[in-house]
Design a binder for these strands. Sequence first.
DNA 1: GATGAGTACTATACATTGTATAGTACTGTG
DNA 2: CACAGTACTATACAATGTATAGTACTCATC
Lengths: 107, 107
Amino acid sequence: MNVQFKKGVLELCVLVLLDKQDRYGYELVQRISDRIAISEGSVYPLLRRLTKDGYFTTYLKESTEGPSRKYYKLTDEGRRYLDELLQEWETFTNGVNQLIEEGVNRE
Amino acid sequence: MNVQFKKGVLELCVLVLLDKQDRYGYELVQRISDRIAISEGSVYPLLRRLTKDGYFTTYLKESTEGPSRKYYKLTDEGRRYLDELLQEWETFTNGVNQLIEEGVNRE
DNA sequence: GATGAGTACTATACATTGTATAGTACTGTG
DNA sequence: CACAGTACTATACAATGTATAGTACTCATC
């Protein structure tokens, strides 16, 4: 899996998953890993950064399955940022796919 | 336009356009710029890198419109690499789009 | 001839964000 | 106690865009 493709996308993935419900870090890693090979080590700094930037708030919650979990919750600002990113992603991938069509089509 | 999304994609775009026909650097910049905002300054180092890596060969050709042009031509190795990248791009974007679906769908 | 615009390419410092790796801490089980 | 699974923290490094600055050529205009 091309590392460079992934840049910038990880935060989109995290924001999208949190749009649906609050989640803890490890769960986010697992959910994303179902679709894209990622390193655990990159998610936590990202979560910290996005929290610092005001897109999430966090709270601790006891777990019956292991240590307590740090949950992340999307803020309104986070939700707005997500909408932006979703649009950018769509515009961007459409642009790339159009280039691929142009390049691949042989007249 | 999110800079990080673009990482790794520029080389895919260049390879795809050269799959169709030989092109010179400036033309590649223009064609890609039609779809994605990119900086000219990033394309030339990329072209040099991919040439050094064996994916292109180059030749000079006189132009009637300005200075002579340095054309880039895809090698067989380049074509193979392109196929790889195309598959990776598809796998990757499908994975991201699936995550977006999951995250966005509210039950 | 000088100048400017457009064509065409080169070079470099820097910012950003993944990976890889190493580690910590908690809980339950054997 | 040791180990596995759960859950999180920290850091060095690689890679590749951007921004910026520049070079050189050709043609048109003054």
